[in-house]
């Protein structure tokens, strides 16, 4: 459990350092596009299904252009212990009004709204995962700072990102040692956990002390400077512009209906 979570974390992080058209875009462009995408998707009302379908174009494009392994991300989406599924499943239970008959099979409003929640869930989670799979986390932090996040919060995120891997690895070693010596559930109780977390905490504070010394010895005086310069290029502008145009088109016009009617007329 712990190991696989850690592996996923590391793998996702490794993906973000690849080099593709999408990876090369400015982090700001990708962050803005992703946020707009999510807001547009959730802005659809409760019973919307067809209107959401064209939005699958975005993840599909990103998957293929950025060469992100589809199975890995889909697995991650499915495994997310989702509050959305847990709450959404009540809709069919509560809302049983039959609103539609699909080739003779009656469908209730609850099932339609549940399906709508599931589609939104899939689209929003996938787009967030695709963002991190195509953008290095330091890049995202840089984008956040450029977009006005306070410096201290951004440097906090960067530190956290840096030591996440160091500490999870350390924790993994301790957990393995615990699991090796605990048979059944013995040794996995709260008491053992508190001892483990306490030990880890002390080691962490000592580490912070050493890091602080390392920072001081290199002239640290309270601020983390940066000389990075990301450039918002023409390609980034085109990317954001195209995204906004497509989002508008998909949100404001009934694409599915139009295609459906057109094809009916043709056949």
């Amino acid at each position: 459990m712990f190991d696989s979570e850690y592996f996923n974390l590391g793998y996702l992080d490794t993906l973000s350092y690849r080099d593709t058209v999408i990876h090369r875009l400015d982090p700001r462009a990708k962050l803005i596009a992703t946020v707009l995408f999510i807001v547009t998707v959730v802005s659809f009302p409760k019973y919307e299904i067809a209107g959401l379908l064209p939005f699958f174009l975005f993840p599909v494009l990103l998957f293929s252009l950025a060469d992100v392994p589809v199975k890995f991300i889909l697995k991650k989406v499915l495994l997310v212990s989702s509050f959305a599924v847990f709450i959404g499943i009540f809709n069919p239970v509560i809302d049983r009004r039959i609103v539609y008959s699909l080739l003779g099979v009656p469908v209730s409003g609850g099932w339609i709204s549940f399906l709508s929640i599931m589609l939104k869930f899939f689209l929003t989670i996938t787009s967030a995962l695709l963002l991190i799979a195509t953008t290095s986390f330091p890049g995202i932090c840089h984008a956040l700072q450029k977009l006005g996040m306070p410096e201290i919060f951004v440097s906090q995120l960067l530190f956290l990102y840096r030591y996440l891997f160091v500490l999870t690895e350390e924790t993994m070693r301790i957990v393995r040692a615990r699991d090796m010596r605990s048979f059944g559930n013995k040794g996995k109780g709260i008491k053992a956990f508190v001892h483990l977390a306490g030990t880890l905490f002390l080691r962490t504070v000592e580490r912070a002390e050493r890091i602080y010394q390392a920072m001081l010895s290199r002239g640290f005086a309270g601020r983390l400077h940066s000389v990075r310069s990301y450039r918002f290029s023409g390609a980034d502008g085109v990317f954001v512009g195209a995204t906004i145009a497509a989002l508008y088109l998909f949100r404001a016009h009934d694409i599915v209906g139009a295609i459906g009617r057109f094809s009916m007329r043709v056949f």
Binding site: Q156, R162, L164, T168, T171, F193
Partner: peptide, 21 residues
């Protein structure tokens, strides 16, 4: 500055450990 950063990583790591209630 470093203390906050590393403690964040500590919470993150500790959250990944399950225990039986």
């Amino acid at each position: 500055v470093p203390l906050m950063g590393v403690l964040g990583a500590f919470i993150f790591a500790a959250q990944m450990i399950n225990f039986t209630i």
